[in-house]
Nucleic acid binder design. Structure first.
Lengths: 159, 159
DNA sequence: CAGTGATACATGCAAATGCATCTATTTTGG
DNA sequence: CCAAAATAGATGCATTTGCATGTATCACTG
């Protein structure tokens, strides 16, 4: 065997940690999505614009985006339909893979992302900055990045 | 004025921290909800059973539950309809408030919660425990609890 | 204690979501 | 090089969700 049996207390600690991470995310997200910014565009749709805006090449494959958001493949496909219908985003065929779709922001999409982003980041700062010291925020950032990195690389089943 | 203007770097740190917290939650949740346990009951419905199981009195008001989950009031109402139709949960009128509904687990609901819970906690431990040391988990737990406490007590708009 | 507003939950209805499946392309194995 | 399997994304359809609103109870004010 490759891993030692976890003790009961180790299991409990992991469970409590996840529970707390999850509930804090719910609490913050609930506030953020009530923000004025998301009257213009639902937060999930904004998140796709944001993800594209952060990408160096400006374009991403749908399956790459899908890894970032908590949506099924088909739901993302239709979410992108909606963004495309609003002229915020453009589909193109991936040059190196005829099955793949590259998604990029239009000028209007960039504009709207920045506009919403400005309000959104203000709401985030208002909620997170006074809750934790800068040192604590850096530590929370480090720990969640480490967790995410582990989960991303772990094999789905027989890890 | 009651708060100093945040510096640009403070805003950026808060935003990066939230982004990382959010993405790590997405990554972990994606794995968890793919677990075998949630073929029996969607994870959101399980979460309501779990919340009830953790409650000392065994019963909670719908609006209390609603604070814990990322669902609109109407969606929770119908989610509870489904749980009730499956005999997992029972509505009763709150004794001290005729408008309120108290929700409690049935025996079948307790049974199913425990059954799913056993698998679920194993999946959590498998995902979280190897990603962070015990010390790091305790720190992550502390920081997310602190964040959640702040957000819960902060006033919605003029905080 | 009547009247007004607020709160708790339910419901009609349109929109979003996920599952299963389909098409098209790419990859793999003989 | 071809057939079979795998992968990317789209689509039909049933389920879930949220918004707006409805009903009932509670809280407050004069």
């Amino acid at each position: 065997m490759t891993t030692a049996a976890p003790t009961s207390s180790a299991v409990r600690l992991a469970a409590e940690t996840w529970e707390s991470l999850f509930r804090s995310q719910v609490a913050v997200m609930r506030r953020l999505q009530a923000g004025q910014a998301f009257k213009k565009l639902p937060i999930k749709e904004y998140d796709v614009l944001f993800t594209l805006s952060r990408c160096p090449t400006g374009k991403l494959r749908l399956n790459e985006i899908n890894d970032h958001v908590l949506l099924s493949q088909s739901s993302l496909s239709r979410l992108v339909d909606r963004l495309e219908k609003r002229g915020l985003v453009e589909r193109s065929i991936a040059p190196d893979d005829g099955r793949g779709i590259l998604l990029g922001l239009t000028a209007a999409g960039q504009e709207l992302q920045k506009e919403i982003g400005r309000e959104h980041i203000r709401d985030i700062a208002e909620l997170v900055a006074p809750a934790l010291t800068a040192e604590e925020q850096r530590e929370l950032l480090r720990l969640t990045e480490k967790l995410q990195a582990f989960v991303a690389h772990k094999q789905p089943r027989e890890g």
